[in-house]
Design a protein around this nucleic acid. Structure first.
Lengths: 151, 151
DNA sequence: ATAAATAACTGAATAATATTCGATAAACAA
DNA sequence: TTGTTTATCGAATATTATTCAGTTATTTAT
């Protein structure tokens, strides 16, 4: 057996999906060629960046999700943006924002479990120069799990 | 001219996309029927929930993004989950998590501009019984749930 | 360890879908 | 107005997904 599942998940995180023109055509009752024309236009304008899969993260072994508010040591990087670019390289970092307020960065981290999360914090404090962090672990994600099923 | 664009964006937020089996087949050099079989399996297991488009939110007029940490009035709802379900109904709420820490909810809000954001806060404090909120407006998104941002 | 049952893989055929093309119509600019 | 660009859309073509059936691999039961 060749376990291609991890490869598929990885590709779907990058994209490798496409719009369903004929289904959209039926839904909004316009010719499929018109739908096609309009979608290509959205893509050319850069309004649509890609198409990707939505996962049930628990089921793919990435169930632990934590939002980390970060204060950076002023000494380590020239700017929060520079730090953020470095932090973003880790594939477990799902998103990273530079924000207003008491904390410069908001890092959304997905790990297998709390142990992997703890290990991440420990190494990152050193590696990136986190001066102070506040962690908010997600107990339940309501909106990302929402998928409409009516046709 | 029939402006289909808003309809398309709305549908793409729900799904209306599909995996590109033949492209994946070429990429990882496995027969397309094998790819097909494995993807269907992932779908049946619920590991993949749907396929969606990824937008450039600035370009589609949803450029203002704020993370709102929320304390709820204990009186209004029976549980934070109940409140979250109500809050999630607003299409401008991109995600909502029930979290550990000082604030029960983390709401990710996408609006056109700061004025719409302010209007949202004003009405939500009353409507959902927000006792206390802390707002972190995203100045720059280095990485989103979906794709890395290059600009 | 062996047999039976189940799950996974795959090529060939078919069904469904996207894309191209050319013609028309609508919107826009000078 | 007139010319120019943008948008719509049906018919033909190209590409892609899906089904099916045979095979192999893996797991389960005896």
């Amino acid at each position: 057996m060749k376990d291609i599942t991890p490869k598929l998940i990885n590709l779907f995180k990058q994209g490798y999906c496409a719009p369903q023109i004929s289904r959209i055509s039926k839904k909004i009752k316009e010719p499929s060629t018109t739908i096609h024309y309009n979608i290509k236009k959205l893509e050319k304008e850069g309004k649509i960046k890609s198409y990707k899969a939505v996962f049930d993260y628990k089921k793919i072994g990435e169930g632990h999700c934590t939002y980390i508010l970060v204060n950076l040591l002023p000494s380590r990087y020239g700017s929060p943006e520079e730090a953020a670019r470095d932090i973003a390289k880790d594939s477990r970092v799902e998103s990273i924002d530079i924000c207003t307020g008491d904390y410069e960065l908001l890092v959304k981290l997905r790990t297998k479990d709390i142990d992997e999360y703890y290990e991440y914090i420990k190494t990152s404090v050193k590696k990136f120069g986190f001066a102070k962090t506040v962690s908010m672990t997600s107990l339940k994600q309501l909106k990302t799990e929402f998928v409409e099923t009516e046709d």
